[in-house]
């Protein structure tokens, strides 16, 4: 008898595990079928590998930072495959270290704004009523200001610099995440399993963290992926205006703004950093789009 229960239990456990894996598997199966999405994934893996291995490919201080006026403005050749800039720095080294800067800053930005957005959105969505009204009206104020205008105002007011840039980008991203989290929570919070958890006397914080957020995570992941892409563009835009990363740190946007002066005779100075941005942003856009279709196939057309 007892043996039988154990057997049944283990069967049930195994069954639930299989169920769980098959969910992930079916998402992966749908994702895999989308060629553009796979292209995005491959591009992103290349980009990540390059930025992780950057120190193996080039020397940060020697190639990317140190000025070498003897070798300035060399067109792409076999020593410098992307050529050198007006200070004689190797463009290839600056591009791959720039990938590190762009990726890490946008990841931090998204992590910060996502955590704040999840807290605000889930509190607003879960409790509803007055708290919801107040929080969402505040978010409306933020949303009424165009994102770039907001980021420029904050970063110009605080002054350029990595920390300030992250702060500005995070603040301008929070309202959008809060909105998305709130709306997905509203669709989930009245379902039976939440009610069951409530009936068991589970604390609100635990219900939100363990039952609601995991079920609402799909659209949030998609939005986060697409937001990383936008953030990369915004960061380079702010740096292009001289409001982002300080020189001489290699950053794609500031490389563009430095190269702009020489662009008539040395077009590679603006073409190459721009292509790097397009490469990274496109990888993330393709992936975000593929994820959206894979997570919720009903949405696809």
């Amino acid at each position: 008898m007892t043996d039988n229960t154990v057997l049944n239990n283990s069967k049930a456990v195994r069954k639930s595990k299989v169920k769980k894996r098959s969910q992930l598997k079916s998402i992966w199966f749908r994702y895999k079928k989308n060629k553009l999405a796979m292209l995005g994934l491959v591009l992103l893996i290349i980009l990540t590998l390059v930025s992780i291995c950057a120190p193996l490919l080039a020397n940060y201080n020697e190639d990317a930072i140190r000025q070498d006026m003897k070798n300035r403005l060399q067109f792409p050749n076999k020593d410098h495959i992307f050529g050198t800039d007006q200070y004689g720095r190797d463009l290839f080294a600056r591009i791959i270290f720039g990938a590190r800067v762009s990726l890490s800053i946008s990841l931090i930005t998204i992590a910060v704004s996502l955590s704040i957005g999840i807290i605000i959105g889930s509190v607003a969505g879960f409790y509803g009523g007055k708290i919801d009204d107040v929080l969402m009206r505040i978010m409306d104020v933020f949303l009424a200001i165009p994102q770039m205008l907001m980021a420029i105002s904050i970063v110009a007011a605080l002054g350029p610099g990595t920390g300030n840039l992250i702060a500005a980008m995070s603040i301008s991203n929070v309202p959008r995440f809060a909105r998305i989290v709130r709306s997905s929570i509203l669709t989930i919070k009245d379902q039976e399993f939440v009610e069951a958890a409530k009936a068991c006397g589970t604390r609100d914080g635990r219900i939100i963290a363990k039952h609601i957020v995991p079920n609402a995570i799909g659209p949030i992941i998609v939005q986060a992926t697409l937001n990383i892409a936008e953030t990369i563009i915004s960061i380079s835009g702010l740096s292009f205006l001289g409001l982002g990363i300080k020189a001489p740190t290699p950053e794609w946007g500031s490389m563009l703004s430095e190269g702009k002066e020489q662009m008539r005779y040395y077009p590679y100075l603006v073409i190459i950093p721009g292509m790097a941005i397009v490469f990274a942003v496109m990888a993330l856009n393709l992936m975000g789009d593929g994820l959206r279709d894979a997570l919720d196939p009903r949405l696809k057309n």
């Binding site: 553009l36 835009g237 702009k260 603006v270 721009g274 941005i277 397009v278 942003v281 496109m282 856009n285």
Partner: peptide, 15 residues
Amino acid sequence: AFLLTSMPAFWLGLM
């Protein structure tokens, strides 16, 4: 369409 959304406006302008 993907290419255009992935292109920063200031870079397209420069090009």
